[in-house]
Nucleic acid binder design. Structure first.
Length: 494
RNA sequence: GCGGGUGUAGCUUAGUGGUAAAGCAUCAGCCUUCCAAGCUGACUAUGAGGGUUCGAUUCCCUUCACCCGCUCCA
């Protein structure tokens, strides 16, 4: 992973933000090649969702429209969505063991006779810690001698009697601290608590609050989707693992609105479609999998969630989330209807039926996708001069090809420039004239350029160029005037 | 947020209480008919702030960033 981070910096994919000021934790800048890679992924997603959506189960193209909502909305949006309040889980620390617990995950066993330690134990005690704690610290008591209470129902004044879940001494738990993961800001030049607003924690809410606008203005009919790509912000307690968990990141989300009776069908449809998407741009084989959330993992309103996960170097042999596909029921629209007091249900003019649409949400991390593409592409190969190359699928590669005159004299640069001028309108291509050919191949390998076209004396004689393929380093000659169609054919998704 | 570790050039590493060294990369030039070759030259560093000291990259403190573990991840 260290090597990938170093390559990203050296070749201009991703830099630590505010580098020259010593950096800032949890933020990253995308360099010249990184922004191309990120834009390519974004554009492919947008095309697969909005411009050319898949064919649905009924054989008709699915209907999806785009949206670009504001990052800052009325703060009530985040109250309705549950991010303000529910998003702020109070935590308690143990001063002795340095462990941290969610307050609402801890129960306390209060002795009925008032004597001895109050035992704090995990609420869902899968490892059967409770009996052993009672045996060790209960001085002969049994579980029946205690009354189980939730930690958050106990006043802080009584914390001195509590023995932490992993502690040996009583009174080591700190007062619960709230963690609000939403970024706060103030609207207007004069700061006061009356004008607090939030940077969005997800792009999805911008879609839900515009559901009615879109229905009323764009002739869409349920089932249909609204898609959005954009920045989101979360005050992560601990940003880690390069861009995987950062405080400012980018999402690609689509909310698909359908009749409740069809929801399961669409859920299955999108699960399959989304997996296909990642496979087509180069994430394949054993590095990607689909994982269903367990009941304990599900948010209370979801009737099912699947994660598409990637085996990142820092999660291996485990996997890390790349995209979540969630059946969110009618929770979000209902919440916004309640809080905004606006009717958000849908009237179907064909069936004369009025209902609240259910939502299937494929929500992908764009910046996580970029990281997965980089990790997938990073290939060590001691047999080549660069020692490493990026095995990008041509459709996501920041540079599609390099035009290289074999030498910097005679007709080589002239013909190379001519070819470059022909291609640059359609493809992102590099023209590199300086230095020996091996160095230039090595450089293109490191940034993942799939093809190099080399002009030599034979080009002058018969108009053919050498194509050098990145992964195999094999070469073949093709006519110079067929280079554009050669590239065009290979840009298609697998 | 807690505990442990790390911080010298773009990268990899030397080194010292007294002028900070090298390889690779990058750039310029020469040379070169296919994989970082060769020759010449150029650029670039002690993360930041403070303290001790005649003098600190070296010792001390603070801070920032990164790495590992814990915690967290709607």
């Amino acid at each position: 992973m260290k090597d990938i981070v170093a390559l990203c910096k050296r070749r201009g994919f991703i830099f630590g933000a505010s580098d020259i000021y010593g950096g800032i934790n949890g933020f990253w800048d995308y360099g010249p090649l990184g922004v191309e890679l990120k834009n390519n992924l974004r554009d492919l997603w947008w095309k697969s969702m909005v411009l050319c959506p898949p064919i649905g189960p009924d054989g008709e193209p699915v209907e999806i429209v785009g949206l670009d909502s504001a990052i800052i909305q009325n703060p009530k949006v985040w109250v309705a969505s549950g991010h303000v309040g529910g998003f702020a889980d109070p935590m308690v620390d143990c001063k002795e063991t340095k462990k941290r617990y969610r307050e609402d995950h801890i129960d306390v066993l209060v002795p009925n006779d008032g004597n001895g330690a109050w035992l704090a134990v995990p609420q869902s005690d899968e490892d059967d810690i409770t009996p052993s704690r009672i045996k060790k610290f209960g001085k002969g008591k049994t579980e029946g001698d205690y009354t189980r209470k939730a930690l958050n129902s106990i006043p802080f004044a009584d914390y001195g009697k509590i023995l932490g879940p992993d502690a040996k001494e009583i009174g080591t738990l700190t007062e619960p601290k709230a963690f609000n993961l939403l970024f706060e800001t103030k609207i207007g030049a004069v700061a006061s608590d009356d004008n607090i607003a939030y940077l969005r924690g997800e792009t999805a809410q911008g879609i839900f609050i515009n559901f009615k606008n879109v229905v009323d203005s764009s002739r869409v009919k349920v089932p249909f989707g609204i898609a959005q790509v954009g920045k989101a912000f979360r005050n992560e307690v601990n940003p880690r693992n390069f861009v995987f968990r950062s405080r400012e990141f980018e999402q690609m989300e689509m909310e698909f609105f359908c009749h409740p009776k069809d929801a399961q069908m669409w859920f299955d449809f999108w699960k399959a479609e989304r997996q296909k998407f990642w496979q087509q741009i180069g994430l394949s084989g054993d590095n990607i999998l689909m994982r269903e959330h367990g009941q304990d993992e599900l948010v209370f309103y979801s009737k099912g969630t699947f994660d598409i996960e990637y085996k990142f170097p820092f999660t291996a042999p485990g996997f890390g989330e790349l995209e979540g596909i969630a059946y969110r029921t009618d929770y979000d629209l209902t919440q916004h209807q309640t809080h905004s007091k606006q009717k958000l249900d849908y009237f179907d003019p064909v069936t004369n039926e009025r209902f609240m649409p259910h939502v299937i949400e494929p929500a992908a991390g764009l910046t996580r996708g970029v990281l997965a593409l980089l990790c997938e592409a990073y290939t060590v190969d001691p047999s080549r001069p660069s020692g490493v190359y990026l095995n990008f699928h041509p459709s996501v590669a920041p540079k599609k090809a390099a035009i290289l005159p074999l030498t910097a004299k005679d007709q080589h640069p002239v013909l190379a420039t001519k070819l470059y001028m022909e291609l640059r309108d359609e493809f992102v291509v590099d023209l590199d004239i300086k230095q020996n050919i091996g160095k230039r191949y090595a450089r293109q390998d490191e940034i993942g350029t799939p093809y190099c076209f080399t002009i030599d004396d034979q080009t002058v004689a018969d108009g053919t160029v050498t194509v050098r393929e990145r992964n195999t380093m094999k070469q073949e000659r093709i006519p110079m005037d067929s280079v554009a169609s050669y590239l065009r054919e290979r840009m298609k998704r697998a």
